[in-house]
């Protein structure tokens, strides 16, 4: 099956959709700037659509190694709780603190 031809021009709605997927809050100015710049980059990338890649496998890594396993699981000291929490924006001294993900009825 041939690859679908992607639409190279991004609409403001599409930029907002991507920004939400990427967890980025963008200003209106950024949205309009990125819409133009990303469209230009995608148009440039469209040269790849002309290359014949039938029967060419994709390269995800240049190494021959696949599914590398640890030789054996050797216990080693890890970070202390204090070290692990040292860079956290908010902690209660024992855990990372974040906003509730689920509505618990409070």
């Amino acid at each position: 099956m041939p690859d679908p031809t992607p639409a190279p021009t991004l609409s403001p709605a599409e930029v907002e959709r991507i920004a939400l997927l990427a967890r980025l809050d963008l200003t209106e100015d950024e949205k309009s700037r990125y819409a133009g710049q990303l469209s230009a980059i995608l148009e440039y990338a469209a040269t790849l659509m002309t290359v014949n890649v039938d029967d060419i496998p994709p390269t995800a890594t240049v190494l021959d190694a696949r599914n590398v396993m640890r030789a054996e699981d050797i216990p080693a000291p890890g970070l202390s709780r204090e070290e692990a929490l040292a860079n956290a924006p908010r902690t209660d001294g024992a855990s990372f603190e974040v906003q509730a993900t689920f509505d618990n009825g409070d």
């Binding site: 690859d3 679908p4 031809t5 995608l42 990338a45 659509m49 290359v51 890649v53 994709p58």
Partner: peptide
């Protein structure tokens, strides 16, 4: 497929 996988093939 159109962008990422094609780029990996090239």
């Amino acid at each position: 497929d159109a962008y990422y996988v094609r780029a990996q093939k090239v």
